[in-house]
Design a protein around this nucleic acid. Structure first.
Lengths: 348, 348
DNA sequence: CAGGTTTATTAAAACGTGTCAACGTTCCGT
DNA sequence: ACGGAACGTTGACACGTTTTAATAAACCTG
């Protein structure tokens, strides 16, 4: 009873060393640079580790090395399947490098974003992949000053050379959607989007307007903008009333939503009023989440390489961590229009 | 140049102490028990903290205290909106207590679950909320032995008194769905579910069978079971072929899916074959995620209090952390049948 | 005003790990 | 056989924080 583990004190590197009859330093070497230690002692240490069921303490480790082996991933909304897919890409890539991912959720609130960044600073995270709530880089720079480099995700125009970034060309996406609608003969288009300080929303709208201008119309005339509080289906459904305001004559011929969730909400709202897409109205979404293919009618939408987005962001971060003199990079993917059943030619 | 911050060494509690003209211990007190320190010195310290932009190092803190201030949340699939909602509940509740949540994804793989638990042990996490991939409690017990208590989520029958658990009564859910279908006159029912070692799937099936037996039929005759590899829409869509096998005469009159994703996939697959619910087949899902209300027809499903589930699990964990001699608790919510358009009376 | 009590602060000792200079051993070539 | 390189191992210290016992100062109380 006395020789067995009577107390419950957690076992540390010293206990292992004692058991294996070596110094703590050697145990550390076995754990971190096994090639430096003779095979026989290494095996002895490894056995002691097993027998004692030793698991190393990352607090001590990080304290000593000044750096943690986990990275942060700050997303705008855990609930959105778009981010879930991105998260998978980040996680897989980080995992390959032995880094753990701490997922943080800002819920589109600047205050929560700030809190999350503070947390990352306190943990001395190795780095972070960040989808910012706005274009303000103050927080980002602060975090970097604290020694935590960040890669921006889903933000196209980074002011100055403050960080790496990876994004999808939102202008091109809006343009493609706009051209598609115009080719179908639609002239009055409503844009349904979130707050203007989300860069994604703003730029997609610009793309849409560019398509309209290209066709010889005045965007200020042809495009109507409606802002929703949040970017989810509920907001989309509620917005339908405003979309339809003005009666059947003045009603838009198409709605371009900045997000699939919104678009699906719109489809639902139309159904509730006895209307439907594309018969009464064409509807276009953005992101091409799984859901888009599953609703009826299938949602025409602008696809983004979600998983690759996450993967690329993490790779950029890794390269920044490895390379001491590193130049920031700006990576931009191309979106792809996916045509399904929710859009059709305009029949007056 | 010499008086300003020439070097980039991170600022620690000692620097703050020096600046404020006090000892490190006092700074620590200001940070952790402000009431113990005189107002004048406290203000001096607080100013120094601001001026130096000090952020505390959680490695040092945790090392000293032997405990970290973050908890783990291990989910089966980040991509599933059901878990996203649960995560929100956990996160909110933990946030109120100043705990950070580390989100880990096992992707339904035992190996990844094990890796995640190891990570939590290395970080000496304060605790964990866990949705296990199977009923094997070995990992869980190991984690507890390492000093990280866990609360089980979504698992009803925990073998022995190994941990707190919170779940929704899966038997009752299956029963409610089954009765609903039987009342509509359906006799041949197919159950579509994931691997049998996921407790949720097994128990829901049992509930369904109980409903069938209750109506005087033999479950072995009336209920057909099809297992899918994964619990997502794609698997559901693929499974449709097998569901329909046997031709229109032997085709089931209803499909009960263990998951809304699956059910939505089935709806999609039916559509692709020129069939639809509820005309040709009634379809029932499980979870009542947002998606269920958005597809056409609306999905009849078994609702679970997702957010509350996460919140309750975290509260149980908190109570265990606070109370040294703590009895494990088993909390069980009641599910609620939500009837929408995907089910209807059987018309021969 | 002595003795006692409260209040504010400090110095020093941990916590578990990684690193680095130093040391001892072995092995090689001359 | 001897100098020296290569290899293995060690011991001590540093990392940033919290905590405890101890000290100093201020405040009561009879």
């Amino acid at each position: 009873m006395s020789s067995t583990e009577g107390t419950n004190r957690p076992v540390g590197i010293n206990d292992v060393a004692a058991r294996a009859g070596v110094s703590p330093g050697t145990v550390s070497n076995v754990l971190n640079r096994p090639e430096r230690v003779a095979e026989s002692t290494r095996r002895r240490v490894e056995r002691a580790v097993q027998e004692l069921d030793y698991v190393r303490n990352s607090s001590g480790r990080n304290l000593r090395s000044g750096r943690s082996d986990s990275v942060g991933l700050l997303v705008l909304d855990v609930t959105n399947p778009f981010f879930a897919e991105v998260a998978r890409g980040v996680e897989d890539t980080a995992g390959e490098e032995g880094l753990a991912v701490v997922l943080l959720n800002s819920a589109e609130q600047a205050a929560r974003q700030r809190r999350s960044m503070r947390l990352l600073a306190e943990q001395r995270a190795a780095g972070a992949v960040i989808m910012p709530v706005d274009n303000d880089t103050e927080d980002l720079l602060w975090l970097r000053k604290q020694g935590v480099p960040g890669v921006l995700l889903d933000i196209g125009d980074v002011p100055g050379e403050t960080a790496c970034s990876v994004s999808v060309d939102n202008h091109a996406g809006g343009l493609a959607a706009g051209r598609h609608l115009i080719n179908l003969g639609h002239e009055r288009i409503t844009y349904l989007g979130g707050p203007a300080d989300l860069e994604q929303c703003r730029t997609r709208l610009e793309g849409l307007c560019a398509a309209v201008a290209e066709a010889g119309s005045d965007p200020d005339e042809a495009v109507r903008v409606i802002r929703t509080a949040q970017l989810n289906a509920e907001s989309g459904e509620k917005a339908v009333e405003e979309v339809l305001a003005g009666g059947p004559k003045r009603r838009p011929q198409a709605v371009f939503c900045t997000n699939d969730q919104l678009a699906v909400g719109v489809l639902k709202g139309l159904g509730g009023r006895g209307l439907s897409a594309p018969g009464d109205l064409s509807v276009v979404g953005y992101d091409d989440v799984d859901l888009a293919a599953l609703v009826h009618p299938g949602l025409t939408t602008v696809g983004q390489p979600k998983y690759e987005l996450g993967r690329a962001a993490m790779q950029l971060l890794l390269s920044e961590l490895g390379d001491p003199d590193h130049r920031h990079e700006r990576l931009r993917f191309a979106p792809e229009l996916v045509v399904r059943g929710s859009t059709a030619a305009y029949r007056p």
